[in-house]
Amino acid sequence: MSVLEAVQAALAAEHAAVYGYGVVGGRAGAARRTDAAAGLAAHRARRDALERTVRDLGGTPVASAPAYALPFPVPDAAGAVRLGAELEDRVAGVYADLVRAAGGALRREAAVALREAAVRSARWRGGGVAFPGLAERR
């Protein structure tokens, strides 16, 4: 996977996360609304930064889809919490791949993004996994 492909994959995941957090925020309930808002803001910022990075690499940023299929029904607050964790796990995976594909500052930034996604996932779930972002080891 080239650096540009890995950045585009991360951008696509961030588009999906921004969409998904809209659902999370709508269903999360008062107790978790702050987490949902913080997550949404974080993913918007990452999305914008990745769009700049794609352009810096000479590419055209992938666009967001008008809508995304949710991985499972989210009828209530418990579903919203599960979705929040799922979104973060997916984002963690693409950033782990970006760490592998990139070097220098972009690699370090991808590692920071992976760390932040892993912590947000653990906040939603109340626990962590041994190898965040590594689907083959989880």
């Binding site: 760490v99 592998r100 590692a111 962590g128 965040p132 080891r137």
Partner: peptide, 10 residues
């Protein structure tokens, strides 16, 4: 590097 990033995140 990918593994180190994951362990650091953990």
């Amino acid at each position: 590097a990918r593994l180190l990033a994951s362990v650091a995140a953990a």
